[in-house]
Amino acid sequence: MPELVRDLSEEQLLARIFPLLPSGSSTLVGPGDDAAVVAAPDGRFVVSTDVLVEDRHFVRSWSSGEDVGWRAAMQNLADVAAMGARPTSLVVSLVVPGDVEVDWVTGFARGLALACAEVGAAVVGGDLSGGDAVVAAVTVHGDLEGRAPVLRSGARPGDVVAHAGVLGRSAAGLELLREGRPDVGEALVTAFLRPDPPLEAGLEAARAGATSMMDVSDGLVRDAGRIARASGVVLDLDAPGTALAEDLAAVRVAADALGRDATTWVLTGGEDHGMLATFPDGDLPAGFRRVGRVVATAPGSSGPVTVEGAPAAVGGGWDHFSG
Protein backbone atom coordinates (compact mmCIF):
# COMPACT_ATOMS: atom_id res chain seq x y z
CA MET A 1 0.00 0.00 0.00
CA PRO A 2 1.28 3.48 -0.80
CA GLU A 3 2.26 5.67 2.13
CA LEU A 4 -0.25 8.49 2.70
CA VAL A 5 0.18 11.95 4.18
CA ARG A 6 -2.04 11.00 7.14
CA ASP A 7 0.40 8.22 8.03
CA LEU A 8 3.06 10.82 8.95
CA SER A 9 3.32 13.67 11.40
CA GLU A 10 3.99 17.17 10.10
CA GLU A 11 7.61 16.97 11.22
CA GLN A 12 8.06 13.60 9.52
CA LEU A 13 6.63 14.93 6.25
CA LEU A 14 8.79 18.05 6.41
CA ALA A 15 11.80 15.81 6.99
CA ARG A 16 11.02 14.16 3.63
CA ILE A 17 10.64 17.55 1.89
CA PHE A 18 13.53 19.68 3.20
CA PRO A 19 16.38 17.64 1.68
CA LEU A 20 14.81 18.04 -1.77
CA LEU A 21 14.62 21.85 -1.70
CA PRO A 22 17.32 23.92 -3.42
CA SER A 23 19.39 26.55 -1.62
CA GLY A 24 20.58 29.48 -3.71
CA SER A 25 23.54 31.82 -3.38
CA SER A 26 21.36 34.59 -1.90
CA THR A 27 20.15 32.46 1.03
CA LEU A 28 21.72 33.45 4.34
CA VAL A 29 19.37 31.47 6.60
CA GLY A 30 17.24 28.76 5.02
CA PRO A 31 14.43 26.50 6.29
CA GLY A 32 14.48 25.46 9.92
CA ASP A 33 14.03 28.75 11.80
CA ASP A 34 10.94 30.92 12.25
CA ALA A 35 11.87 32.86 9.11
CA ALA A 36 14.45 32.81 6.36
CA VAL A 37 17.04 35.49 5.68
CA VAL A 38 17.81 36.34 2.05
CA ALA A 39 20.41 38.81 0.81
CA ALA A 40 19.17 41.88 -1.07
CA PRO A 41 22.39 43.44 -2.43
CA ASP A 42 20.47 45.90 -4.62
CA GLY A 43 18.80 47.40 -1.54
CA ARG A 44 15.39 46.57 -3.06
CA PHE A 45 13.63 43.32 -3.78
CA VAL A 46 10.84 42.36 -6.14
CA VAL A 47 8.04 40.24 -4.66
CA SER A 48 5.04 38.47 -6.16
CA THR A 49 2.69 35.68 -5.13
CA ASP A 50 0.39 33.22 -6.84
CA VAL A 51 -1.72 30.21 -5.96
CA LEU A 52 -2.70 26.90 -7.54
CA VAL A 53 -5.96 25.27 -6.42
CA GLU A 54 -6.83 21.64 -7.13
CA ASP A 55 -9.65 21.20 -9.67
CA ARG A 56 -9.43 24.89 -10.53
CA HIS A 57 -5.88 25.13 -11.87
CA PHE A 58 -4.90 21.48 -12.05
CA VAL A 59 -6.40 18.01 -11.74
CA ARG A 60 -4.41 15.40 -9.81
CA SER A 61 -5.40 12.62 -12.19
CA TRP A 62 -3.65 14.59 -14.96
CA SER A 63 -0.81 16.10 -12.99
CA SER A 64 1.98 14.47 -11.00
CA GLY A 65 3.39 16.17 -7.93
CA GLU A 66 6.41 17.19 -10.01
CA ASP A 67 4.12 18.78 -12.61
CA VAL A 68 2.33 20.89 -10.01
CA GLY A 69 5.56 21.85 -8.21
CA TRP A 70 7.10 22.91 -11.53
CA ARG A 71 4.05 24.99 -12.49
CA ALA A 72 3.79 26.59 -9.07
CA ALA A 73 7.39 27.74 -9.28
CA MET A 74 7.46 28.74 -12.94
CA GLN A 75 4.39 30.97 -12.89
CA ASN A 76 5.98 32.93 -10.05
CA LEU A 77 9.49 33.00 -11.47
CA ALA A 78 8.02 34.42 -14.69
CA ASP A 79 6.37 37.30 -12.81
CA VAL A 80 9.69 38.38 -11.32
CA ALA A 81 11.51 37.98 -14.64
CA ALA A 82 8.85 40.14 -16.28
CA MET A 83 9.86 42.99 -13.96
CA GLY A 84 13.42 42.69 -15.24
CA ALA A 85 14.64 41.04 -12.03
CA ARG A 86 16.52 37.84 -11.33
CA PRO A 87 14.50 35.41 -9.16
CA THR A 88 16.33 34.56 -5.95
CA SER A 89 14.03 32.78 -3.51
CA LEU A 90 10.60 31.23 -3.02
CA VAL A 91 8.45 30.68 0.04
CA VAL A 92 5.90 27.89 -0.46
CA SER A 93 2.76 27.01 1.50
CA LEU A 94 1.14 23.67 0.72
CA VAL A 95 -2.27 22.39 1.81
CA VAL A 96 -2.76 18.63 1.35
CA PRO A 97 -5.58 16.24 2.24
CA GLY A 98 -4.59 13.23 4.36
CA ASP A 99 -5.31 10.76 1.57
CA VAL A 100 -2.65 12.23 -0.74
CA GLU A 101 0.30 9.90 -1.25
CA VAL A 102 3.57 10.99 0.33
CA ASP A 103 5.28 10.35 -3.00
CA TRP A 104 3.04 13.01 -4.59
CA VAL A 105 4.21 15.56 -1.99
CA THR A 106 7.88 14.72 -2.38
CA GLY A 107 7.35 14.89 -6.14
CA PHE A 108 5.96 18.41 -5.65
CA ALA A 109 9.19 19.36 -3.87
CA ARG A 110 11.27 17.86 -6.68
CA GLY A 111 9.26 19.85 -9.24
CA LEU A 112 9.95 23.05 -7.32
CA ALA A 113 13.64 22.20 -7.24
CA LEU A 114 13.81 21.46 -10.97
CA ALA A 115 12.16 24.76 -11.86
CA CYS A 116 14.30 26.77 -9.45
CA ALA A 117 17.45 25.21 -10.90
CA GLU A 118 16.71 27.04 -14.17
CA VAL A 119 17.67 30.34 -12.50
CA GLY A 120 19.54 29.30 -9.36
CA ALA A 121 16.70 30.32 -7.03
CA ALA A 122 16.13 28.75 -3.61
CA VAL A 123 13.11 27.53 -1.66
CA VAL A 124 13.75 29.11 1.74
CA GLY A 125 10.65 28.14 3.73
CA GLY A 126 6.88 28.13 3.87
CA ASP A 127 4.08 26.28 5.61
CA LEU A 128 2.39 22.90 5.52
CA SER A 129 -1.26 22.25 6.43
CA GLY A 130 -4.01 19.71 6.02
CA GLY A 131 -7.18 20.55 4.11
CA ASP A 132 -9.90 19.29 1.80
CA ALA A 133 -8.00 19.92 -1.47
CA VAL A 134 -4.43 20.53 -2.58
CA VAL A 135 -3.58 24.23 -2.59
CA ALA A 136 -0.09 25.55 -3.36
CA ALA A 137 0.66 29.20 -2.59
CA VAL A 138 4.04 30.51 -3.66
CA THR A 139 5.71 33.86 -2.95
CA VAL A 140 8.80 34.71 -4.98
CA HIS A 141 11.49 37.35 -4.47
CA GLY A 142 13.84 38.81 -7.03
CA ASP A 143 16.92 41.03 -7.35
CA LEU A 144 16.88 43.99 -9.75
CA GLU A 145 20.70 44.02 -9.83
CA GLY A 146 20.78 47.81 -9.96
CA ARG A 147 18.31 48.18 -12.83
CA ALA A 148 15.04 50.08 -12.77
CA PRO A 149 12.02 47.77 -12.71
CA VAL A 150 10.22 47.37 -16.03
CA LEU A 151 6.58 48.33 -15.45
CA ARG A 152 3.42 47.92 -17.50
CA SER A 153 2.99 51.68 -17.72
CA GLY A 154 5.94 52.70 -19.90
CA ALA A 155 4.79 51.85 -23.45
CA ARG A 156 4.84 54.85 -25.80
CA PRO A 157 3.49 55.44 -29.32
CA GLY A 158 6.03 54.27 -31.86
CA ASP A 159 7.35 51.42 -29.70
CA VAL A 160 7.55 47.91 -31.11
CA VAL A 161 5.43 45.25 -29.38
CA ALA A 162 7.43 42.04 -29.02
CA HIS A 163 6.99 38.62 -27.48
CA ALA A 164 9.40 35.94 -26.24
CA GLY A 165 8.24 32.38 -25.74
CA VAL A 166 5.24 30.53 -27.15
CA LEU A 167 1.52 31.19 -27.38
CA GLY A 168 -1.50 28.88 -27.44
CA ARG A 169 0.30 25.67 -26.50
CA SER A 170 -0.92 25.49 -22.90
CA ALA A 171 -4.52 26.27 -23.87
CA ALA A 172 -4.42 23.56 -26.51
CA GLY A 173 -2.93 21.06 -24.08
CA LEU A 174 -5.61 21.80 -21.50
CA GLU A 175 -8.37 21.21 -24.05
CA LEU A 176 -6.79 17.92 -25.12
CA LEU A 177 -6.79 16.76 -21.49
CA ARG A 178 -10.37 17.88 -20.94
CA GLU A 179 -11.50 16.00 -24.05
CA GLY A 180 -9.53 12.87 -23.19
CA ARG A 181 -7.34 13.23 -26.31
CA PRO A 182 -3.80 13.76 -24.97
CA ASP A 183 -2.44 11.46 -27.69
CA VAL A 184 -3.25 14.09 -30.33
CA GLY A 185 -0.55 16.45 -29.08
CA GLU A 186 1.76 15.20 -26.35
CA ALA A 187 4.00 18.27 -26.64
CA LEU A 188 0.96 20.51 -26.12
CA VAL A 189 -0.10 18.57 -23.03
CA THR A 190 3.44 18.96 -21.67
CA ALA A 191 3.22 22.69 -22.36
CA PHE A 192 0.18 22.85 -20.08
CA LEU A 193 1.53 20.57 -17.35
CA ARG A 194 5.04 22.07 -17.35
CA PRO A 195 5.17 25.51 -19.02
CA ASP A 196 8.69 26.61 -19.89
CA PRO A 197 8.81 30.42 -19.80
CA PRO A 198 11.84 32.23 -21.24
CA LEU A 199 12.99 33.59 -17.88
CA GLU A 200 16.31 34.92 -19.12
CA ALA A 201 14.47 36.92 -21.80
CA GLY A 202 12.97 39.12 -19.10
CA LEU A 203 16.42 40.16 -17.93
CA GLU A 204 17.62 40.62 -21.50
CA ALA A 205 14.63 42.85 -22.23
CA ALA A 206 15.39 45.02 -19.21
CA ARG A 207 19.03 45.35 -20.26
CA ALA A 208 17.92 46.26 -23.79
CA GLY A 209 15.75 49.14 -22.56
CA ALA A 210 12.24 47.64 -22.66
CA THR A 211 9.72 50.40 -21.95
CA SER A 212 7.09 48.01 -20.56
CA MET A 213 6.77 44.29 -19.94
CA MET A 214 4.61 41.60 -18.35
CA ASP A 215 4.27 37.84 -18.13
CA VAL A 216 1.59 36.54 -20.50
CA SER A 217 -0.33 34.37 -18.07
CA ASP A 218 -3.91 35.17 -19.11
CA GLY A 219 -3.63 35.37 -22.90
CA LEU A 220 -1.97 37.73 -25.40
CA VAL A 221 -4.99 39.95 -26.00
CA ARG A 222 -6.02 40.23 -22.35
CA ASP A 223 -2.49 40.96 -21.15
CA ALA A 224 -1.74 43.33 -24.03
CA GLY A 225 -4.81 45.23 -22.88
CA ARG A 226 -3.32 45.54 -19.40
CA ILE A 227 -0.17 47.16 -20.77
CA ALA A 228 -2.23 49.41 -23.04
CA ARG A 229 -4.49 50.63 -20.24
CA ALA A 230 -1.59 51.16 -17.82
CA SER A 231 0.31 53.13 -20.47
CA GLY A 232 -2.64 55.04 -21.93
CA VAL A 233 -2.00 53.72 -25.45
CA VAL A 234 -3.30 51.15 -27.93
CA LEU A 235 -1.37 47.98 -28.76
CA ASP A 236 -2.02 47.16 -32.41
CA LEU A 237 -1.11 43.52 -33.07
CA ASP A 238 0.16 42.35 -36.45
CA ALA A 239 -1.71 39.76 -38.52
CA PRO A 240 -1.55 36.47 -36.57
CA GLY A 241 -1.06 34.46 -39.77
CA THR A 242 2.28 36.19 -40.24
CA ALA A 243 3.51 37.32 -36.82
CA LEU A 244 2.37 34.18 -34.99
CA ALA A 245 2.65 31.62 -37.80
CA GLU A 246 4.88 29.27 -35.78
CA ASP A 247 2.43 29.20 -32.88
CA LEU A 248 -0.52 28.59 -35.20
CA ALA A 249 1.29 25.70 -36.87
CA ALA A 250 2.09 24.14 -33.49
CA VAL A 251 -1.56 23.95 -32.39
CA ARG A 252 -3.22 23.34 -35.78
CA VAL A 253 -3.49 19.55 -35.54
CA ALA A 254 -5.08 19.75 -32.09
CA ALA A 255 -7.47 22.48 -33.23
CA ASP A 256 -8.57 20.41 -36.22
CA ALA A 257 -8.98 17.27 -34.08
CA LEU A 258 -11.19 19.05 -31.53
CA GLY A 259 -13.00 21.40 -33.91
CA ARG A 260 -11.46 24.47 -32.29
CA ASP A 261 -10.02 27.66 -33.76
CA ALA A 262 -6.21 27.74 -33.64
CA THR A 263 -6.10 31.54 -33.84
CA THR A 264 -8.31 31.86 -30.75
CA TRP A 265 -5.96 29.65 -28.75
CA VAL A 266 -2.93 31.67 -29.85
CA LEU A 267 -4.47 35.09 -29.22
CA THR A 268 -6.37 34.33 -26.01
CA GLY A 269 -4.95 31.14 -24.49
CA GLY A 270 -3.18 31.63 -21.17
CA GLU A 271 -0.51 29.99 -19.01
CA ASP A 272 2.34 29.80 -21.50
CA HIS A 273 4.07 32.53 -19.44
CA GLY A 274 5.98 34.18 -22.26
CA MET A 275 7.25 37.77 -22.02
CA LEU A 276 5.28 40.55 -23.71
CA ALA A 277 7.29 43.76 -23.95
CA THR A 278 7.55 47.05 -25.79
CA PHE A 279 10.80 48.52 -27.08
CA PRO A 280 11.86 51.73 -28.78
CA ASP A 281 11.93 51.11 -32.52
CA GLY A 282 15.13 49.24 -33.35
CA ASP A 283 16.81 45.88 -32.87
CA LEU A 284 15.09 43.48 -30.47
CA PRO A 285 17.00 41.40 -27.90
CA ALA A 286 17.59 37.73 -28.60
CA GLY A 287 14.50 35.57 -28.24
CA PHE A 288 11.97 38.31 -29.00
CA ARG A 289 9.92 38.60 -32.21
CA ARG A 290 7.81 41.56 -33.29
CA VAL A 291 4.07 41.04 -32.84
CA GLY A 292 2.77 44.60 -33.23
CA ARG A 293 3.26 48.29 -32.53
CA VAL A 294 2.16 50.87 -30.01
CA VAL A 295 -0.10 53.65 -31.26
CA ALA A 296 -1.70 56.63 -29.58
CA THR A 297 -5.20 56.26 -28.22
CA ALA A 298 -7.62 57.65 -30.78
CA PRO A 299 -10.73 59.59 -29.68
CA GLY A 300 -13.63 57.16 -29.46
CA SER A 301 -11.29 54.18 -29.69
CA SER A 302 -13.18 50.90 -29.32
CA GLY A 303 -10.59 49.19 -27.16
CA PRO A 304 -6.98 49.04 -25.93
CA VAL A 305 -5.97 46.22 -28.28
CA THR A 306 -6.46 46.02 -32.03
CA VAL A 307 -5.39 43.49 -34.67
CA GLU A 308 -4.29 45.23 -37.87
CA GLY A 309 -6.29 48.24 -36.75
CA ALA A 310 -9.53 46.34 -36.07
CA PRO A 311 -10.82 45.85 -32.51
CA ALA A 312 -9.59 42.60 -30.95
CA ALA A 313 -12.22 40.13 -29.77
CA VAL A 314 -13.29 41.00 -26.22
CA GLY A 315 -13.69 38.52 -23.41
CA GLY A 316 -10.76 36.33 -24.45
CA GLY A 317 -8.13 34.97 -22.11
CA TRP A 318 -8.22 33.37 -18.70
CA ASP A 319 -10.18 34.95 -15.86
CA HIS A 320 -9.96 33.38 -12.38
CA PHE A 321 -13.63 33.97 -11.61
CA SER A 322 -15.31 33.36 -14.95
CA GLY A 323 -12.89 30.65 -16.14
Rank of each mutant, 00 (worst) to 15 (best):
His320Met: 05
Asp33His: 15
Ser129Tyr: 05
Gln12His: 10
Ala162Met: 07
Ser322Thr: 14
Gly65Phe: 10
Thr106Gly: 04
Asp159Thr: 07
Ala313Asp: 10
Asp319Gln: 08
Val53His: 12
Thr106Ile: 07
Trp104Glu: 08
Asp183Leu: 01
Gly43Asp: 14
Val251Glu: 06
Asp223Arg: 07
Ser26Glu: 14
Gln12Ile: 07
Pro182Phe: 00
Asp215Lys: 09
Val53Arg: 12
Ala201Ile: 03
Leu276His: 09
Asp236Val: 03
Ala36Trp: 12
Arg86Thr: 14
Pro31Met: 11
Ser25Trp: 13
Gly32Ala: 08
Met1Tyr: 05
Arg86Ala: 07
Gly241Ser: 09
Thr190Ile: 00
Thr264Phe: 11
Gly317Val: 08
Arg178Lys: 06
Leu4Arg: 09
Ala82Lys: 06
Val138Cys: 05
Val305Asp: 04
Ala115Gln: 03
Asp215Cys: 06
Gly168Leu: 00
Gly120Asn: 07
Ala277Met: 15
Leu248Met: 14
Ala243Lys: 07
Gly270Glu: 06
Thr278Val: 08
Thr190Ser: 02
Leu114Trp: 04
Ala36Glu: 06
Pro304Cys: 11
Thr263Val: 15
Asp319Asn: 13
Gly315Ser: 08
Ser212Ile: 02
Ala85Val: 10
Gly142Thr: 13
Val47Cys: 08
Ala187Phe: 00
Leu90Val: 08
Glu66Gly: 12
Pro197Gly: 02
Gly65Val: 08
Ala121Lys: 11
Arg147Val: 01
Ala298Arg: 14
Asp256Tyr: 02
Gly309His: 09
Ser170Leu: 07
Thr49His: 15
Ser231Gly: 05
Val138Met: 05
Glu118Asp: 11
Glu145Asp: 12
Asp103Ala: 15
Val138Leu: 05
Asp218Glu: 04
Asp42Met: 09
Leu94Thr: 12
Gln12Glu: 14
Asp283Asn: 12
Val134His: 06
Val140Asn: 06
Pro87Gln: 05
Trp104Asn: 06
Met275Ala: 13
Val100Tyr: 00
Gly130Pro: 04
Ser93Asn: 11
Ala73His: 07
Ala155Arg: 04
Ala310Pro: 01
Gly165Pro: 04
Asp103Gly: 10
Val160Asp: 04
Val150Gln: 07
Val140Tyr: 03
Gly180Phe: 02
Ala164Met: 02
Gly84Ile: 01
Pro97Thr: 12
Pro41Ser: 13
Pro157Asp: 04
